[in-house]
Structures are given as structure tokens and as C-alpha cells.
Amino acid sequence: MSEQPPSPASPPRPTPHPVPFRGGGFNPRPLGIVGPLVFVGLIGLWELGSQTGVIGALFLPAPSEAFAALNELFQSGFLWKHLSASLQRLAMGWSLGSLAGVLVGLSIGLFSLARAGLVPVVSALFPIPKIALLPLFIIWFGIGEGSKVATLFFGSFFPTVIATYGGVDAVDRGLIRMGQSFNLSWLSIVRKIVLPGALPAILSGCRISASIAIILLVAAEMIGAEFGVGAYILLAGNLMAMDQLIAGVVLLSSMGLIVAFLIGKAERRLLRWRR
């Protein structure tokens, strides 16, 4: 057949057929049930491994043991003591740190002098692990609540500064010019144009700084803390009580989830206009 030259006459017309579809894929769909299912599946496998002895008790406690430790903590009433101690420190350190961060970030965004003077300082101090400064904090703020709150304060201050001035920089200059063209006062422009414009960036900065604050909780509670989720985890580690360790980690990560949920809610409320 192939040796035959194509017929000089018009080639045979193929029968009409539909255009093939080529546009599929590359379009992630939300599959709400899969996430929890994977989670449950993993924990189930873990429990099974522990029950059958594939995972040694020395290496990793069974999820049921961790749950029992959590339950014991709840029954003994210490759960609230630990949680309230930690939450108080978080609330103090994080909110003061974020507030100061927004103020400093705003002044960097608005004033050339502040930008020139503070940006290098912030860049130099931000990457220092606050844990390394703990001995200094102890000398400055004592071994009481002061050094713990200070650790969380500095942990949340720097990311907020950077997020805020980044947000201010990203505010549409056209909107500011509009404000000026309508003779709005400087304060009105800052309050009604710059701040709301920077709010999305500030809120995502808050997300990060809250996570950092939770991470630093364990470090902060290394010093002279009797109660606190971080102190509980440290003690569990010291005692090689892995079930309590896992229970403490679960507490920490639920704190993270709750904070993320609250900030998400705040975002939905404050950034309603974006949707």
C-alpha cells in the first residue's frame, strides 16, 4: 500500500468526527474529605504499628497512649493551668510585639528618616535566633514573666515590622495621590488609605508572627517556668515521657490551628472587600 503513489484524484474524505478534547487536568478541585481521611489513616496505621509491636514502645508511643496522657492532663486539671499560663504569655508577648511592629513598620513606610535608620537595624536583628538571646533576656528582664514575654515580643515584632512596611510600600500610589488631590489631611490619608491598603500584608504578617510566637513558647518556657505548654513539653522530654511529649505537641499544634483559624476569621471580616 505504501508504495502506491497518492492518487492524483482528490483523496478520500474521512468521515466527520468531533474535535478531540485536550483541555483537561491542571485544575485542582477541592476534595474536602481527603485531608481528614489521610490524617485518620496515618494515625490508624501508627496505632496499628504500635499495637502489633512493629513500632517499639521506646521509639514512639501509640496514639492511644498520647491520648491517655492528654486525658490524664485534663482530668488532673493541670491542662488549664498549662494552657492559661501559655496563652497569657502569648497574648501579652504577641499582641505587644505585633502592635509595636505595626507602629515601627508604619513609620518606616511613611518616613524616609525612619526607613534609612531602622531598616538596617531590623535586617540585622531579625535573623538572630531569639533563643540565643535568652541569657541576655534573663539578665534584663529576670527569670519571671518578663523574659518569657520579651522572647515572644521580639519573636513577633520583627516579622510584623517587615510585613507592615512591605504592605505600606505596596499601597497603590495612585490612591494616595487621589487622596492628596481631594485635599485629604495627612492623617486621613494614613488612616483611610495607607493602613487599609497595608492591612492584607499586616494580617499575613500576623499569621507568621503568631506561628513564630508559638514556636518560641517552648524556648521562652525553658526559663523558670513551672506551668505552660512549653514547660510541659520540656519536662516530658527530660523525663523521656514520650506519650506526654506527643500530647504536648498536639496541644501546641492545636493552639496553632486555633490561632490560624482566628486570624483567618479576622481576614475574612476585615478584608471582605477583597473577595
Binding site: 495612585g174 490612591l175 487621589m178 487599609p196 491598603g197 478584608l271
Partner: peptide
């Protein structure tokens, strides 16, 4: 506001 602009990109506050 004697001299008042209308901008090409509208310059409305989205929020």
C-alpha cells in the same frame, strides 16, 4: 475642592 481630578484608573478605594 476647586481643582478636582478624575483618574484613568478610577482610584476608588477597594475597601
Amino acid at each position: 475642592n476647586p481643582l478636582t481630578y478624575v483618574f484613568q484608573d478610577f482610584a476608588l478605594l477597594p475597601w
